[in-house]
Amino acid sequence: MFHVAALGELLIDFTPVGLSNAKNPIFEQNPGGAPANVLALVSKLGKKTAFLGMVGQDQFGLFLKEVLEKNNINVSGLKISEKFQTTLAFVHLDKSGDRTFSFYRNLGADMMLNASDVNYEVIKEAKIFHFGSVSMTEEPVRAASIKAAMFATENGSIISFDPNYRPLLWSSVEEAKKIIGIGVKLADILKVSEEELELITGKIDVAVGADMLFREGVKVVLVTLGKRGCYYKYTGGEGYVDGYAVNAIDTTGAGDAFLGAFLYQICDMKMDELCGLNKNDFKRIIDFSNAAGALATTRTGAIPALPSIDEIHNIRLTR
């Protein structure tokens, strides 16, 4: 049994770590890919996880497989391609630690996962199935992602979806909205940023946009607001939970840490139990998730920056 299984991209984030003597940027090789980041925190906090996806038979792909194994993430659903290379992403940080990406992904291995490559036995064993839209930008992995999510639904898994919108990976905004909309329709739990909420709903007002998604069938809507925390909406209510003030140096993976912390806390719940929580208990789940997301910004990288359970508990004591 797996508490969370996730399908999607597994890649290398090259993160800036300073300048060389010649004043040129130095980049550090870090494991990346939002679904893997989510799993890494769930696993670090003590639950069983499994990854489904594809990397290349190259030094980067083998490094990523090793990282998953070291983080106690099951790799029986990880395919190694001899034909396609592992995707690379270069992270660019501004003065506040906010990041943009440059992708080297022309027929990257993560894009070439076919529906027939997916280990459906892993999904059968998953209480929660998580995926994002980066694995929906191109075929054949788009069809594989949708089929896997539908299979998970049929097998009774809770479906978690993160649009994780990366404009450079889509041919147009219109295509992105259309395909992301498919993921939204499949989702029980939806984690979005303010920008993604506006993209999907056309609404700037967070409460209005979240209500639209809730009325369309999403059972839990989580709108991450950076250092301002999170807006949530579920059957038991809606509202804001404040974030944590930290010295942010790299926001890469912060949203993944937030979502990983959220999924960790609901691993042993059924969907109706989650929706039936009273508002105070639900807000405590969000607060824990906010703490994890904030702490992930205080170190560089994504998986290397994920906090421990003790770090999360300690920062919450500062409230």
Rank of each mutant, 00 (worst) to 15 (best):
G33Q: 07
T318Q: 13
D58I: 03
V218H: 02
V4Q: 00
F84N: 15
F101L: 11
T297I: 07
A248K: 03
N278M: 08
E9I: 03
N74P: 13
K48Y: 04
D310A: 05
I315L: 09
I266Q: 10
I73R: 05
G61C: 07
Y165D: 13
K95H: 14
Y165A: 06
T235R: 10
L39R: 11
K219D: 10
D281S: 08
T297H: 08
L168K: 15
F103E: 09
S172R: 10
N30Q: 08
A34Q: 10
L45D: 09
L113D: 04
H130F: 01
M150R: 08
A292Q: 09
T251V: 15
L197N: 06
E138N: 10
M150V: 10
Y232N: 04
V4L: 15
I182H: 02
L93I: 08
S289F: 12
F288R: 04
D250F: 00
P167K: 12
A305F: 01
K283F: 02
N247A: 13
F282K: 04
P16S: 04
E196T: 15
T235C: 02
R99S: 15
V220N: 01
I285M: 08
P31K: 02
T100R: 14
L186F: 06
L52G: 07
K279P: 06
A115S: 15
N278V: 04
S160G: 03
K233G: 02
G156R: 09
A152M: 12
V42S: 11
F51S: 05
N106Y: 11
F90R: 03
C275W: 00
N280C: 01
C230L: 06
I180Y: 07
S96D: 07
F51M: 14
I26Y: 00
K124Y: 00
V173W: 00
L64K: 11
T86G: 14
V246N: 10
L259F: 15
I309K: 15
G239K: 00
F151D: 03
K65D: 09
F63N: 11
N290I: 12
G226P: 07
L52E: 03
F214N: 06
R215A: 11
S172H: 00
K95E: 13
P167F: 09
L78D: 12
I266D: 06
E9F: 00
